[in-house]
């Protein structure tokens, strides 16, 4: 009886605190792709090669997939990430969209590089 009370008295709060810590530290795992459709870095790579080869239509297609992938990743990491981190990456994608539309190779590559950087720093 006393042992049970000790378990509920000490173990339950400790377990709750550990669960909170794990949830808040989980960005690095949650940003990883669960399926092919949310593999952001794969799309970044594809878009980069599309832009270098000046395949703008294909780059646009892959950008749409990247945007969808970001939506999924964003909903997973929103609880542990800061507002700023999420907004930075969203803004990169918005600018990338415009650069691809304008077929601006220079700006597109800049935005892609920054997107990659922001993605890497998520959870670091």
């Amino acid at each position: 009886m006393k042992l049970m009370r000790n378990i509920t008295g000490y173990m339950v709060p400790v377990i709750i605190l550990i669960i909170f810590a794990v949830l808040m530290l989980s960005i690095s795992y949650l940003k990883q792709p669960l399926a092919k459709s949310d593999d952001m870095m794969q799309y970044v790579k594809l878009i980069k090669s599309d832009i270098k080869a000046k395949k703008w239509n294909q780059a646009d297609e892959n950008f749409k997939r990247l945007k969808e992938a970001w939506k999924k990743v964003r909903s997973r990491i929103q609880f542990a990430a800061s507002n700023g981190e999420i907004e930075d990456l969203s803004n990169n994608l918005a600018r990338l969209e415009g650069a691809i539309e304008a077929k601006d190779k220079l700006s597109s590559l800049i935005e892609l590089s920054e997107t990659k950087n922001h993605w890497k720093s998520l959870g670091k």
Binding site: F20, A21, M24, L25, F79, A80, A81, S82, N83, G84, E85
Partner: peptide
């Protein structure tokens, strides 16, 4: 304060 990760506050 959503501008900072919850972990930092915690």
């Amino acid at each position: 304060d959503l501008s900072i990760r919850p972990w930092a506050h915690w």
